[in-house]
């Protein structure tokens, strides 16, 4: 553009204020780049000794770093996946209730109430999970183990405290519920009015209208909301650290007192007492957690951005 009309171009006066202000804005933007680079570099720098260290120093059983990390990775994904299993249907239900079922006037208030859940600090969720939820669920767990113990998921022996991975999953589900709900509610509200009215005019019931117009339109948004919720569940620390009675194992049993712990909870529980190579090992696990959430979140963003281009709404 500039090169087209070199002769007639009127140059604005260079003002000191402009230079300073735009410079400050640019610096702030670049600082973000630097900060993220710093996060990665410092984590990698502190994590490196863990990868190269003598296996005997890394873990008590002396089998090295990866045999220590893989159960943690499993636990992280397992707990988050279970939480998603509970949270997803509930969130879709709540989002539909607020966007398409509740009367217009109260819908906003109802949305605010669900958002309140997001405002509760995670340590309070942890406290609630261990003092209220775990004891309340324990009788149910005993019942499940007694009657359905032949299913591998419900294999015994039952935990006496209720501090199982299932309780953790429920707490995590409650924590990610508001995120998934808020995002999918927005997507459902964006459904083109014409599609909805067309479906209703053809004689569809409200549910048929939702199934034919709202859900297909909202599917990509729903997927990315799910991914963002998953990302949050993967990185959640305190609720897991407080509620779970942890061990470093791979197990699909939901109700025993031997539960696979998560990376984040493991760091929180062991970091204050860690020293020497132990610190490096924990930071290395943190780096792996960072990578996992990075992949999940990027996938979510990718789906959101792809949708922007093809969405019928714009």
């Amino acid at each position: 553009m500039d090169t087209d009309l070199p002769a007639t171009r009127i140059r604005a006066k260079q003002r000191l204020g402009d230079v300073l202000f735009s410079g400050a804005a640019l610096a702030a933007g670049i600082l973000i780049l630097v900060a993220l680079a710093a996060v990665t570099i410092f984590l990698v720098a502190q994590a490196l000794p863990a990868f190269t260290a003598d296996p005997a120093d890394v873990s008590k059983d002396g089998r090295g770093f990866w045999s220590f990390v893989i159960p943690l990775v499993f636990g992280t994904i397992w707990a988050a996946a279970l939480a998603l299993l509970f949270a997803l249907p509930l969130s879709i239900g709540i989002a539909l209730f607020i966007s398409h079922y509740a009367p217009r006037r109260v819908a906003l208030t109802l949305g605010y109430i669900v958002d309140l859940l997001a405002a509760v600090p995670s340590v309070v969720f942890g406290l609630w999970g261990i003092t209220v939820l775990a004891p309340a669920m324990q009788p149910l767990y005993s019942g499940l183990v007694d009657s359905l113990g032949w299913i591998p998921f419900f294999a015994g022996p039952v935990s006496g405290t209720g501090r199982t991975v299932l309780t953790v999953a429920i707490v995590l589900a409650v924590m990610i519920l508001p995120i998934i709900t808020a995002l999918s509610r927005e997507v459902f509200l964006q459904t083109p009015r014409l599609h909805e009215e067309a479906a209703l005019a053809l004689g569809a019931t409200r549910w048929e209208m939702i199934r034919m117009a709202v859900l297909p339109f909202g599917r990509p948004g729903l997927i990315s909301a799910t991914m963002l919720g998953l990302g949050r569940a993967l990185g959640e620390t305190m609720a897991v650290a407080m509620v779970l009675s942890p061990s470093v194992i791979i197990s699909f049993a939901l109700l025993t007192s031997q539960n696979p712990t998560t990376i984040a909870a493991n760091i929180a529980l062991n970091f204050p007492e860690a020293s020497g190579i132990g610190v490096n090992v924990l930071i290395a696990t943190g780096l792996i957690l960072f990578l996992i959430t990075l992949v999940v979140n990027s996938l979510a963003r990718f789906i959101i951005n792809r949708r922007k281009d093809f969405s019928g709404a714009n």
Partner: peptide
């Protein structure tokens, strides 16, 4: 990307 950083990783 920063939005998705788990809080414990920020601490680390």
């Amino acid at each position: 990307v920063m939005t998705g950083i788990p809080s414990i990783v920020a601490g680390l």
